[in-house]
Structures are given as C-alpha cells and as structure tokens.
Design a protein around this nucleic acid. Structure first.
Length: 576
DNA sequence: GCCGTTTTCGGCCCGACTGTTTTCAGTCG
C-alpha cells in the first residue's frame, strides 16, 4: 500500500492531538498541525518526492526533524513517536476531542480523574452523574456532553461536511430572511463557502448594521433553527434542522473588510497574513488593522492586504498554499471566471440517461451565450444508461449535422462519453470515433483495480489517437465514493506527452479533479476541460461549481480548453 | 518543532462566549 499525503497528514494530526492532551509545548503542537496542513494541501505526492530524493525541509513549516519523519512515514508506513504516544495514552483519546466543548484539557482531566478513554466510557460516566463532580466541570457541562453524545449517535453514518450545492440551497433563503431585519447595511457569507470549497462544515454569515438592529434575535428565531448554541451581542451560533451549524457575526461597517477577511479564512491564510502584520508592527484582527491603538485600515479587504504590502487576493486562493508568496512577487494568477467559458464539453441527452432532448439542450446552451456544446452520451458498455452502439451513435451524428444546419450562433459538437474497458481498450471502434469532433473517455466499472493496473489502463487508453479528454479522472463521488486508486501524476504526464486533456467535472457531486490536482495539471502544462455532466437543461448552470473549483486550483482562462472559440479548441484537440 | 529585515535564541495570531472560577481558563473559530 502506498502512503498517501493524507496518511502522513493524519499521522501528524494524531501526534498533535496526543501531545496536546499531554499538555506539551503548544508551539510544538502547532508545528505538527502546520506540517499536516502543508502535506495535506500539497499538489505533489510526498511519496514521490521522497523517492526522488527531494529536500522536504524546503517546504514551509517543515524543518529537518519533520522532513525525516515524513521520509520515515513514507518508507515504513508508521512513526515511532506516534507509536510511543499511543502506548502512553489510550489511542482513542483524541476521538473525545471531537465532542464540542471538550478540548485537550478537559479530555485529560476526564482520563486522569475518571479513567475515561473512549466515547462509550464517557457516556457511562455522564449517565452516572460522575462528570459533574469533577472540578472544572459542572452540571451544565455534563448535560452538554450528553446532548453532544446523542447528536453524534444520531449523526452516525451521516457525513460531516455538506456539499457546496446543498449549502447554497440552505444559505440563500436564510440570507433573504435576514435581509428583512431592520438596519442591515451589509451582509455576506464568508468562510469556506466564499472560498468555494467543494464541501462546507458550517456557514459563516457576516453582517454590519445600525445600532440596535434586531438581526441577532431574528437569526435565532429563524424557522429552520433547531437549537441556539450561543447568543451574545455580536455573535450567535445556531444549529439548523438540517444539522448544519451557522455562525452569525455582527461588526461595525468600518470593520467590514477586515471582518470579511478574518471570517473568510482560511485560518492558515489569516495567520500568515497576521504574521506579516506583526513584522510591520501592525495588529490585525476582525476589527481592523491597527498601528498602536490607531486603526489604519479595515473598511475593505483590499485595504487590509494593502497594509501588509500585498495586492488583493481572491478568496479561492486563500489556503496558504503559496498565494501570499505569489502576491508578494506580483505573480498571482488572473483566475478563470464564468464569463471566460465558451461552451460545455460534457452533456447527456435523453437518447441515453439524460432527460432533455438535443434541441432543448442546444437552446439552453445558446441562451447561456455559449458558442458550442459537446453532446457526450454514454457508450454501449454502460448498458443501464442505454449506452450508444455504433449504429445509434451514427444516427445521433446525423441528427447533430442536421441540427447544426438549422442553428445559428452555436455549434453542437459530435462527441461521446466513451467507456475505457478493463484492458485499456475503448468501447467503440476508431472507424466511428473519427467521425466525432472530440472523444471524452471515462471509467465506469472495475474501480477496484490496483493503483498500478488502473494507471496502466488509463494510459493505454490514451495511446489510442482518438482519445481527447479523460473525464472525472479519479471517479470519486463526494461523501459517497472514494476515488479509485490511480497515480494521477503519471496520468498527467502521459496526457501531456500524448496531447490529451483532463476534465474537471463541474457536477457538485463530483468536482473531480480536486483543486490540488488542477494546480498540478497547470504546473505540468496539461490543460483542463470543464464540463457539467449535465443530464437536463438546468444542469448547464452547474458550470459555476466547476469554475469555483478551477479557481481554487489557480487556473486561468489560458489553462482551460473551453475558453477558446471552436477554431482554437479544434486546433488543441488535434493529436500527433 | 520552526524560523530569521527582532537571525541560532526566543519568540511563535487574535478575540468572543461559556461556565464555573469569584477574576478567568478552556474552547472555538
């Protein structure tokens, strides 16, 4: 089993948890957490870096010690420090910290005083009213723990973070409701939602309003609120019936920019910015940028960045993955925007498993101002979707030719979502594929091949000169199905050598490629096609999620296939 | 444990809310 970046990050986070419970030096703990973040967000595999003999201590937050530990983790699949810690303390102890209200200090007290080492033991102690007797704990805390335990039990099996598309459906009516409160001046959703992350853990809403505005009360009275967690003068948190937590913060208008920056995060980005402030003798918090007691900025985010000598940084980039360094060098990417997109390259009709007709989709795409639309119905191997055989594909080709004669201002591209078979061959013969404008290929079965075999399978498919775009390259379904094992770097390398491309599937259930892989593709010079995988007209609107993900991956219009007009696109698709 | 226009030691981001503590530690974001 190869060791993935997420495994190494997991080791370091576990170490940090255990050190924290032990009460170790908080800065040492932070070093482990930072390293976990760095490794987790890397656009290259650490296992490969180790193999190539790269100097890991050049990574931010990684020194000699952690570089050695990473190497050890990659080579042996374990870490002595972690194993020793797990001998000293029960390995499940960190799980208790997942309970809201329990941090390292309380967990340690529970363990030392009552011998509690697992969620089950915690439950027993709470039921026996043992917890309220501990110093530092009380009746309220015990009740809260019980409530949390019940909530966790109910949530078991459910996913923690929700997809951004679901979050959108929840946040829009809430915003409309809050805006009716008197005295609202500005309102914006911040947090990972604003950074367009594929999933969000909670929602952060920022408001500035006139004195005495009832917005906080109104928030707590929202009909979808299940429980008010906290409610102060400037901050309130609630749990919605959907299980999603929403935090509302009220700040003065003069602080809106700094507060927006603060609550948009990411936390790591903010910490890095504040550190830059400290070097310039500035204090940066949600109320502004301060020199001594004097506020020198805060109304807009641009001002905040300006005070630390940086240009404005787009929210999607704020992950402390190199954006601050790029900003300092005036080398930030000019991120792709929705307006740059000239067409959709992944769309199904009701000839296979879609719900709209060819004509309807063409009309829908035209309304969006697209220049072209690629029809990519399934091929025969996907029998459940009534996939096309040679005969039906030829029929569709004729239909598209006929439709194109009628249509003005948009061109329908003849294409297919072609199955890559287990042996790496393609599902239809090249005689028919060469009649198409482009060929999109994907894997729909045999997900559990070994990493080596899956990688080989895809690269062999790319050897076929008909192959243009690898669709949903890792096959994951967010919160439902893990990506299949594949060496994505090798796949990218192979795509680059053969003049093939990778898709960023814009469907919010997929968003496949991941953001870090988009960045990796950019760095290796492989262009990305963004397609919605639409199965009905309305799905064409899903493009915005793909663009969000592309922006998180630092992509510019230049890096994306379907920002070209058809002539430009056609040139790029030509192989050999 | 990391790091350096405060440079090899001594720092390391900042504030709100809660509960229990009678003046603040712990937790969270």
């Amino acid at each position: 089993m190869p060791v993935h970046n997420s495994d190494v990050a997991g080791f370091f986070n576990r170490i940090a948890d255990l050190l924290e419970i032990k009460g170790e030096n908080p800065f040492r703990i932070r070093a482990y957490r930072n390293a976990a973040r760095t490794i987790g967000g890397l656009s290259k595999s650490v296992a490969d870096l180790v193999e190539k003999g790269a100097d890991l201590s050049e990574l931010p937050g990684i020194g000699n010690d952690l570089a050695q530990k990473i190497e050890r983790a990659v080579r042996t699949g374990s870490l002595p420090l972690l194993e020793n810690l797990q001998k000293e303390l029960p390995p499940e102890l960190p799980d208790l910290m997942k309970i809201q209200g329990l941090g390292p200090k309380k967990v340690r007290a529970l363990y030392e005083e009552l011998g509690i080492a697992s969620v089950g033991q915690l439950k027993k102690a709470a039921e026996g009213k043992k917890i309220q007797q501990l110093s530092g704990f009380g009746e309220t805390t015990e009740k809260k723990i019980k409530g949390e335990l019940r909530r966790l039990e109910k949530k078991k099996g459910e996913k923690e973070r929700i997809k951004i598309s679901i979050a959108e459906q929840i946040v829009n009516p809430l915003l409309a409701y809050l805006k009716k409160a008197e005295g609202i001046k500005s309102m914006q959703v911040a947090g990972s939602y604003r950074r367009r992350k594929e999933t969000v853990g909670d929602l952060d809403i920022l408001v500035s309003c006139k004195k005495g505005s009832p917005v906080i009360d109104r928030f707590a009275e929202y009909e979808e609120v299940n429980k008010v967690l906290t409610q102060g003068k400037t901050k309130s948190s609630v749990l919605l019936k959907s299980g999603l937590q929403v935090d509302l913060r009220v700040v003065p208008q003069i602080s809106f920019g700094s507060a927006l920056h603060y609550f948009t995060g990411s936390k790591e980005h903010n910490i890095a910015v504040r550190k830059m402030g400290v070097k310039k003798k500035l204090k940066i918090n949600e109320y502004g940028v301060f020199k001594g007691r004097k506020r020198v900025a805060g109304k807009t985010e641009k001002q905040v960045y300006g005070k630390v000598g940086l240009p404005y940084i787009e929210p999607e980039l704020r992950e402390n993955r190199g954006e601050l360094e790029a900003a300092a060098k005036k080398a930030l990417p000019r991120l792709l925007s929705l307006h740059d997109i000239k067409g959709d390259l992944h769309v199904h009709t009701r000839t296979t498993d879609g719900q709209s007709s060819l004509e309807e989709l063409a009309e829908g795409a035209k309304k969006k101002g697209y220049r072209y639309l690629a029809i990519t119905d399934h091929s025969q191997h996907v029998s459940v979707a009534k996939g096309l055989d040679v005969g039906r594909l030829r029929k569709q080709i004729t239909e598209i030719d006929r439709l194109n004669e009628k249509l003005k201002g948009i061109r329908i591209l003849k294409s297919i979502e072609l199955d890559i078979l287990e042996d790496g061959s393609l599902d239809l013969p090249n005689e028919v594929l060469c009649e198409l404008d482009l060929v999109v290929c994907s894997i729909h079965y045999k997900f559990n091949l070994s990493r080596e075999k899956q990688t080989k399978r895809i690269i062999k498919a790319m050897d076929n000169p008909a192959f243009n775009i690898l669709s949903h390259p890792t096959g994951r379904l967010i919160n439902e199905r893990k990506p299949y094992e594949v060496n994505i770097e090798k796949v990218m390398e192979a795509a680059g050598e053969r003049g093939c491309f990778l898709e960023l599937n814009a469907h919010p259930d997929r968003l496949d490629l991941h953001d870090t892989h988009c960045k990796m593709a950019k760095e290796s010079g492989v262009k990305i096609a963004i397609g919605t995988d639409a199965h009905r007209i309305d799905d064409l609107d899903l493009m915005r999620y793909g663009v969000g993900q592309a922006r998180r991956g630092w992509l510019e219009a230049e890096d994306v296939l379907n920002t070209r007009d058809w002539i430009g696109l056609k040139k790029l698709l030509k192989r050999g």
